[in-house]
Amino acid sequence: MDLISDLLTYFINNGSYVWEQFFRHFLMSAYGVLFAAIVGIPVGILIARYARLSSVVLSLANVIQTIPALAMLAVLMLVMGLGTNTVVFALFLYSLLPIIKNTYTGIRNVDHTLIESGKAMGMTKWQILRMVEIPLSLSVIMAGLRTALVITIGIATIGTFIGAGGLGDIIMRGTNAQDGTAIILAGAIPTALMAVIADVIMGWLERSLMPVKKKKQGRNTQEEATA
């Protein structure tokens, strides 16, 4: 009981500080994913076209993914210095794999007969991409963004080590303070909450972008239709 009241007290006393860090944390994650999407989606489309590139690019992104987060931050810090930009860049790197991979898979899985139909009707390559391939793989691409966002929200907590702020800051304070369990939770719970909310919202977006739609009918039937 103590713990919960301690926690509440912390939130009441430091409400604006927690909110600020929450927001900062979210922005870092979102920017990381955004930049990764700007780079990753076109790369994914490209390697879906040129199958020979795909194995090189995907294994490269895979390697990035396996580097431990702290090690990555340390290396980047040596090059880019302390601060938010370094963290955003790290998050960008971690987001690349899920985004590239899902874009690649999404585009590759578009039914070949549909692409040929489009071509036979006189669509240019660009029109096929814009009117057929992207709309039909949008929900898979969105699933990649969703994974990336959840990953980055988790990783962003260590941004505090290089002075980038975020909810990690609160957790660090808790570990440094005597009897800081409540403070640790005050940082950890909003982080978890953010990840869950992001997951739910992105999941909803993903479903609403499914190519097979039924009008005026609930989500459940939509899922059935595409299952």
Partner: peptide, 9 residues
């Protein structure tokens, strides 16, 4: 074509 190939979206 046989597979019809209408665009589902």
């Amino acid at each position: 074509i046989q597979q019809i190939g209408l665009f589902p979206h």
